[in-house]
Design a protein around this nucleic acid. Structure first.
Lengths: 221, 221
DNA sequence: GTGAAATGTATCTGAGTTGTAACAAAAATA
DNA sequence: TATTTTTGTTACAACTCAGATACATTTCAC
């Protein structure tokens, strides 16, 4: 699971970012100001940092200096008004920037893009002869390519990332579809069925009644 | 991997603790003072917290209050001189305490003990040959899988988490069913019966007359 | 636009889960 | 011991949930 540092002094924004990234499977830590962020950077190695430019303590530009030696990529967050020349000429080091207010989807997409571009998002996941390339979004089983649709792939990735643990239907849904699950709809079940079919995984993806689905871990009976 | 919060203002001690716990496979985060620790607690769910009692910002006792709602167990760290009455009478909530200076071996051992005791070491719960995997929502007895319905499982988990303590009927009910218990209904009793049956635990789940139910602890006759 | 692929909806079904009602047993109380 | 209160048991009906199927809709490349 990729780790994200969110440096944002406005709690509501920080909370929103944390929420939607968490739901997309990222592990988030929030710093309320620049100093806190600097501390965290020195303590832990994050995969990516989201930095509010205007912050008490240390602003985003200073934080970039802290990040540089670690090689952690960064995305600037900026309010519309602040989008001045300083920001525009931001070849100064950030990998991308996002303007508030932003679409949560866009946020997630940008984080993913930066992670992929900087080679931090690409990882291989394995389970029961199935190999998922999180960089290329391709899947093979016993060496042979299996064609999955984008949704199927995302679903599989989530299951593989939480190997051996049951994922609640609504959590799984929100991670894959990115919204709340409608009351009674069979969408999730349908895609699970398709996954099971394509991978021949009827007994590997377990339905946990009234909870959700789980991908067995190797050692489970 | 289990996560540890280390709240300790003396950097050398904090570093030492972090070092030896990291080597034992724990993921450590250090807070330099009470406030920082409080922030981290609200942000992240740690598996265990090591708290220095004397700290600027908020002391260990205050931090315990932050931890209580999350259910995170805590170990107090205290200098020899501080081992006064306050500390001695620390039945006040911490799960254990360690006196500085300490042997690193002892530290690791105590952390492990507390984690196991609180059922967080790998998120497994054990009792009388029964093993509950809180991630997978599965239960085995003497290695063999036992099928429990969702309600039965939740009920079991509650009992196992409060091992050796009687749980009031209404509390147990509200934890499992999530509402107030109707006046006269046999629902709870029925599910207790089913649990007893499936696990062959007639004598392990004790009915405390006029109170509720209790799962025996290993050392009870 | 057309067609193929991807995704979603509607509905049915059967299995599995759960609560109720009615009564039996046990424990406390008198 | 008789009575009341509390807990255990049984059988069954009602219900909920996930699987399946068929079809509708959307998306995308050409």
């Amino acid at each position: 699971m990729n780790t994200v540092l969110i440096a944002e002094d406005e709690p509501s924004i920080a909370g929103l970012i944390k929420l939607c990234l968490s739901q997309s499977g990222y592990e988030c830590t929030v710093a309320k100001n620049g100093l806190e962020a600097a501390d965290l950077i020195e303590q832990k190695d994050f995969d990516i940092a989201l930095l509010d430019i205007m912050m008490p303590g240390a602003d985003g530009y200073e934080l970039l200096e802290y990040l540089r030696p670690t090689g952690t990529p960064a995305i600037f967050i900026t309010a519309k008004g602040e989008l001045d020349d300083r920001v525009r000429g931001l070849s100064l080091g950030a990998d991308d920037y996002i303007v508030k207010p932003f679409e949560t989807r866009e946020l997630v997409a940008r984080v993913e893009t930066v992670l992929r571009r900087t080679g931090r998002g690409g990882k291989m996941l394995y389970a029961f002869g199935v190999e998922a390339d999180t960089h290329a979004h391709t899947v093979t089983k016993n060496g042979e390519q299996v064609h999955l649709t984008p949704l199927e792939y995302t679903l599989l990735e989530q299951l593989m990332r939480s190997r051996g643990a049951a994922l609640y239907r609504d959590i799984l849904y929100s991670r894959v579809w990115g919204g709340d699950m409608e009351d009674d709809t069979r969408t999730l079940d349908l895609h699970i069925k398709r996954l099971r079919q394509k991978l021949d995984w009827t007994d590997k993806i377990i339905t946990v009644y009234k909870v959700g689905y789980m991908l067995k871990s190797e050692d489970m009976p």
